[in-house]
């Protein structure tokens, strides 16, 4: 995840991230060993439950990063940068909140968009040069 969906992201990396993730999640369920039982304290079971959830979350993060075809804030897409390597935001197409709907574990989630309206401040470009 840190490689494909960390400090900077690009479509190729995100797509291969999705593939590697699917493979890893599959291997996890087949090859993991959770010692002990569900009775009594079992920190390894706690760990296994959360890592199983992280696979689902990671997939959603990758999908969201792939769908947001702009660079904004902490989300930097390699494809969307200026000649100086600075972020290029796309207000015409992405001034919205992406809200994902789960439609079953195997199914594609649905991406909703909640448009953002700015009445007092208009979007400006950050510059630190």
């Amino acid at each position: 995840m840190i490689e494909h969906c960390g400090i900077s992201r690009d479509a190729g990396g995100l797509r291969s991230g999705l593939e590697e993730l699917a493979a890893l999640a599959g291997r996890f369920h087949a090859e993991v060993r959770v010692p002990g039982t569900a009775e009594g304290p079992n920190p390894e079971l706690e760990k296994a439950l959360r890592v199983a959830d992280f696979f689902g979350l990671a997939q959603l993060m990758l999908r969201d990063a792939l769908a947001r075809e702009e660079s904004c804030g902490a989300h930097f897409r390699e494809e969307h940068q200026s000649a100086e390597g600075e972020a290029r935001r796309d207000d015409a197409n992405f001034a919205h909140i992406a809200a994902w709907e789960h439609r079953g574990d195997g199914a594609e989630p649905l991406r909703h968009a909640e448009p953002l309206r700015f009445t007092t401040l208009q979007p400006s470009t950050r510059s630190y040069r």
Partner: peptide, 24 residues
């Protein structure tokens, strides 16, 4: 610091917003 409660709520129908916005 797990994310189990919000992830399971998402699986039960709660929408998940801007998952790719993570700060490093």
């Amino acid at each position: 610091s797990n994310a189990s409660a919000i992830w399971q709520a998402h699986r039960q129908g709660a929408l998940f917003a801007n998952p790719c916005f993570t700060q490093i």
